[in-house]
Write a protein that binds this DNA or RNA. Structure first.
Length: 107
DNA sequence: GCAATGACACTCG
DNA sequence: CCGAGTGCCATTG
């Protein structure tokens, strides 16, 4: 029973913010963290998404580093998938990085 | 209970 | 442009 209650609210907040990112835009971990009320806790966002089980329906591919780079290492399936998804939504991905200046989500 | 790790961010040189 | 150091917090051995 107590095996499914790891972290309450914080994750929920993150999911909300990530789910609120419009198509064709991207947000950095720090940005999501700030909007979720976590301040600089970007790591919490990353860990939250990474440890998240299936069935969450969260567009994790719209979340990248503050620097515009894809969070995953080169040669990983996840990175390829994220790149493809972003391109499919109209986001230009050059060498695994995005032009934040033009695609960063501005609330 | 401590040490190491991790889908990060920021500053400095 | 890139490397190194620091902070922040939860998970895992």
């Amino acid at each position: 029973m107590d095996t499914f209650e790891q972290e309450p609210s914080r994750e929920q907040k993150i999911w909300q913010v990530v789910a609120a990112i419009p198509e064709g835009s991207v947000a950095s971990y720090g940005q999501v963290a700030a909007m979720a009320g976590l301040g600089r806790q970007a790591r919490f966002v990353g860990r939250a998404l990474g440890r998240l089980p299936g069935g969450h329906s969260i567009p994790w591919h719209r979340v990248i580093r503050s620097n515009g780079q894809i969070a995953f290492g080169e040669g990983t399936e996840a990175r390829q998938l994220q790149t493809e998804k972003l391109r499919m939504e109209g986001v230009e991905v050059i060498k695994g990085r995005v032009r934040m200046k033009d695609f960063q989500w501005q609330p």
